[in-house]
Design a protein around this nucleic acid. Structure first.
Ligand SMILES: [Mn+2]
Ligand SMILES: [Mn+2]
Ligand SMILES: [Mn+2]
Ligand SMILES: [Mn+2]
Lengths: 218, 218
DNA sequence: CTATATTTTTAGACAAGGGTAAAAATATTT
DNA sequence: AAATATTTTTACCCTTGTCTAAAAATATAG
């Protein structure tokens, strides 16, 4: 029904819509997909024909309900496969994204029904991101960046914004993973750096770290 | 390294080489891959450039050792995924081939190492076909078609030649699967039909059935 | 040993997806 | 309001993998 390339466009536009709250520009898509704006224009016009997104020249695009559902399903598959890779094949959470990028395009509804059951119908992937249900609905949780927390606030790590290997490996070294409790002991206004407590360890983190860690506060 | 299309050609040629013991003709490849001879000529010339097969105009092709290894690895992945689908996701053996056709192209050596371990390093797939090892070596077992058996011979079902849904469903109805013991009670020379015993059931099978069931005799 | 049939290759076209360069539209400065 | 900068689109080309039609090579029959 939809080619690998089309699925990747829909997924990228879905994510950009949520990040930017509104129409998605041609350039934004091109940058995200690491391709050229002219290629994006072509594809977006094709997808508009197929009625999975609305497009007006020079005005940007928005997914239709159909398009959003297709995109959410690809993301569902991506995240379920990531759970499989970590939980069943014992991959580390920083090793699974590239493989899931391939697996998310396998076409078989029954496969996903069974994979989901096999994994115990997980709600979140190994990076703390919510797994859309079979109808494309996502349970969005209250979360904020650690950098938005104040001194003495406590939170539980629920996800990462960045998920590069380097960053995830840093978190590992600091023994931070999904579910880890974090307390802000101090915050430097000049550079946004913090002193935090993780278990019995206390250490310094830069603003760059704090800006890429999602926590749920109570 | 090799595209999905290229992998499929190598796999088809690998199988044809084993079936026909020798060079594989352009037409044979076209028929197997459900494509046109002219397309095959194009692809075969490209693969010869890449030195995964040898090709002389009008003479047919043979895989090089490199080509054979690549093909065996695709087959390894196909069969390991089939084991996964049947053993872990509880698919039926007649439902897994199409999905494995997609999964066999996922590119990640580490994934296959771990999948193999997760499955307990199986030697055979759900249809009784041997799984090549990581070097591309296949343990070929002594097996023959049930149609080649004589009256009163006993054998164990070790595989199927056909693996269409219809055939596998027929076998199910008759309670025949890999490992099932079969005894030939009678054989009709006129049409090749047989009376066989499976467990406590005795029934008639046509030659078409007997020609598509592999057994190991002792 | 020709004549015919079959197989295989070549030549040219097409669709998908992507790239360059230039034109057109929109945004931002002055 | 013009001038300039940026974004977006168009026009055209490229690669992969496919197809049709015709030409060339090989195999088969008389
Ligand atoms: Mn991912
Ligand atoms: Mn993830
Ligand atoms: Mn199969
Ligand atoms: Mn099989």
């Amino acid at each position: 029904m939809f080619s690998l390339a089309e699925e990747n466009y829909l997924k990228a536009i879905y994510h950009l819509e949520h990040e930017n709250q509104g129409e998605v520009s041609t350039n934004a898509i091109a940058e995200r997909m690491d391709t050229k704006p002219s290629s994006v224009t072509d594809m977006v016009q094709k997808l508009a024909e197929k009625e999975v997104l609305s497009y007006k020249k020079y005005k940007g695009t928005l997914l239709t309900p159909t398009g959003r559902k297709i995109a959410a399903n690809v993301i569902r598959k991506h995240r379920l496969w990531e759970v499989f890779l970590v939980e069943k094949l014992n991959f580390h959470w920083d090793e699974v994204h590239e493989i899931a990028e391939q697996l998310e395009h396998i076409q078989s509804d029954e496969l996903i029904v069974r994979l989901d059951k096999f994994l115990g119908s997980p709600d979140f992937d190994p990076h703390g991101d919510p797994i859309p249900d079979k109808h494309g609905n996502v349970k969005r949780t209250e979360k904020k960046l650690l950098s938005e927390c104040e001194k003495n606030q406590r939170g539980v790590c629920v996800g990462v914004k960045e998920s590069s290997g380097e960053f995830l490996q840093y978190l590992d070294k600091r023994k931070i993973s999904i579910g880890t409790k974090i307390k802000v002991l101090g915050k430097e206004f000049f550079d946004g750096s913090m002193i935090i407590q993780v278990g019995s360890d206390q250490f310094f983190i830069s603003q760059k770290i704090a800006e890429n860690l999602y926590v749920q506060t109570n």
